[in-house]
Amino acid sequence: MQLKPISQQVVAIIGASSGIGRLAALKFAQRGAKVVVAARSEPGLKSLVEEIRSAGGEAISVVADVSEFEQVKAVAEKTVAEYGRLDTWVHTAATGILAPFEKITPQEFARVVDVTLMGQVYGAMVALPHLKREGRGALIHISSVEGRRSLPLQSPYSTAKHGLEGFLEALRVELQHEQLPISVTSILPSVINTPYYNKVRTKLGVKPTGIPPYYQPDIVVDAILYAAEHPTRDFIVGDVGKILDLLQKVSPSLVDSLLLLVGFAGQRTTEPKSEDAPDNVFAPISGYDRVEGDFSNLAIPTFLDWLDMNPYLKWSALAFTAFAVFGTAMFLDGWHPRNEV
């Protein structure tokens, strides 16, 4: 399967007014792609398009709530009407509520699932007919490490991300069965320093936070840009996420114990915040149409992501490590080829 170079692509980015989506739009445009950006925040989209155009890029915007199928469909139709085709669909939109499960209402839980899961399903539904018409393309869905391991106080979001992983697995195999050269990628970020924790609803009595450490949004965007040109199944972004995924596979009960230690206090700041404070669960809020959040001081670099974007070096390094470990073990055990004669 071969995807077009980014400079030749038409890319639709959903959830682009802030955070990962906003930076992705800027980076795609810098690389020469024609970009269509969508979100609920009209001021955020307007400032983003102006920024792209002022730098010499091409972009248009569509205001859309991803929980409404017809509005998501309108994004795909506008993309094709303006640029004649669609090559890559990037879906980043999400919302959340940080609260104990018993404090979350049925309406709140359903809303998080509608935006964070069903919005992604609607995105794939409307993008696929256009990608099929082109004969190739990429669906890039922003999931989360919470799609592999749920966190306390985030049950609606974790539910949605687990559902997204199940959906993408089924869709990927169906497309393979049809022998359609359409790449389906799940990007699973660790804790990322975006305005997400400024905008979501909290019932903790304080401003919420992700469990540190954080990573900056650019590492997620690097993974998105990579997947837009290189068919990729899954991409866990951030070394901590990779470690958590491994621990979850080895011993879920160990991860339970770790989260009992850090999962509750680790998601609370000391800054008071009422549950009546403005949030973006049911409607957009102003003031956060930016890429980064408030936790740059807690951000660390990642090292292993580079290997995922250089698979030949990755597998060579793993093979070398395995050979070195095996050789060392044989040496310590007293084995030598002459011993076998």
Rank of each mutant, 00 (worst) to 15 (best):
E82V: 10
F326Q: 06
P208E: 07
A227T: 13
I13D: 03
N193M: 08
K203N: 03
K103T: 11
E169V: 09
L318F: 15
S144L: 15
P43Q: 09
A324N: 09
V35P: 01
H177P: 00
A94D: 15
V80I: 12
A81E: 08
P212S: 07
I97C: 01
I300P: 00
V11T: 07
K314D: 01
A29C: 06
P337K: 04
L171Y: 05
F109I: 07
T328M: 10
S7V: 05
G57T: 07
R22A: 01
S190A: 14
G293V: 04
E340C: 09
D114L: 01
I20F: 03
R111Q: 15
V184F: 07
K78G: 08
L307R: 11
Q154G: 05
F323Q: 14
T269N: 04
F28L: 08
V126K: 09
A277R: 06
F167E: 01
R268Y: 02
K103S: 09
Y196A: 13
K207A: 11
A74N: 14
W335F: 10
I192F: 03
V237M: 05
V113I: 11
I20K: 00
A76R: 01
F167C: 04
Y122W: 11
S143D: 05
F326R: 07
A38D: 04
R136Q: 15
E108P: 02
A74I: 06
H162N: 14
S155V: 14
K46I: 09
A324L: 14
K207D: 02
Q248C: 10
E174W: 01
K249Q: 13
T185D: 02
D305C: 00
G166M: 03
K249D: 12
S41M: 03
S17F: 00
E292W: 02
G44W: 00
L313S: 06
S316A: 14
P284D: 09
I20R: 01
N339Q: 14
V121A: 06
F167I: 08
N198E: 12
A81V: 01
R22C: 01
A127V: 04
T194P: 00
R111G: 13
G166Q: 02
V66C: 10
I300M: 05
V75F: 00
G84P: 10
G21H: 06
L318P: 11
G123V: 03
G327Q: 10
V75R: 01
P100N: 09
S251F: 04
P100H: 10
Q30W: 04
L247K: 10
A16M: 03
V72R: 12
A99L: 08
H162W: 14
V35K: 04
P152I: 13
L188W: 02
A39E: 05
L246F: 12
G205M: 13
S143F: 05
P337Q: 03
A76Y: 00
Q154C: 06
G238H: 08
P337C: 09
P231Q: 15
L153C: 10
D294I: 11
V200T: 06
A94G: 15
I192C: 05
E42M: 15
D256V: 05
E102L: 11
P152A: 14
Y215S: 04
D239N: 03
T116P: 07
R148V: 11
V66M: 05
G238K: 08
G84S: 09
I20N: 00
E42F: 14
R111E: 14
A38G: 07
Q30G: 05
Q107L: 09
S286A: 15
R53E: 15
F326A: 08
P156F: 04
I13A: 01
D289P: 02
